[in-house]
Amino acid sequence: MIAVGILILSFFLDGISSNYLMWMPSFTFLTLLFIYPLFYKKEGKYLTILVITSLFYDLAYTNILLWSTVLYLAVYFFFLRYRKKIGLLEGMLAFIVISFLGYSLLRSIGYSKDIFLFLQTVITALPLVFLYEMLLSFLLFRIHPKRKMNY
């Protein structure tokens, strides 16, 4: 329940921070990653939360319905499912993967941005990704000290 609370806060944080940061760390996505180990053997429940959150994210922020849903599900099926422990490095790696996936999809339909400017944006976002991961791991560790997570 607390995990869902953090998820909702991250959702609004994403919206508010977009006014100030030109290199979004995607707080909602990172939170979805870090709460994954709390749903050990409850994959169905986790997937439901993932789909609902990403749908709301698209409805409120992206103007492309299913955009985040597809990206988040791709990360889940090709990355997250094979890792039962999510650490700081895995989180950063997943952030890079989802950024490149989004960039590739938009580029494939001709909505292109300069690759170097894109890389610059991703690299600039990494320190904040790291800090937010630290905060998440601290909060979740304090709330659920017995869970099997590797920080």
Partner: peptide
């Protein structure tokens, strides 16, 4: 006032 920028479109919206 601007209340949100769309990160999916690289902040073009």
């Amino acid at each position: 006032s601007i209340i949100n920028r769309n990160a999916s479109y690289y902040f073009d919206e």
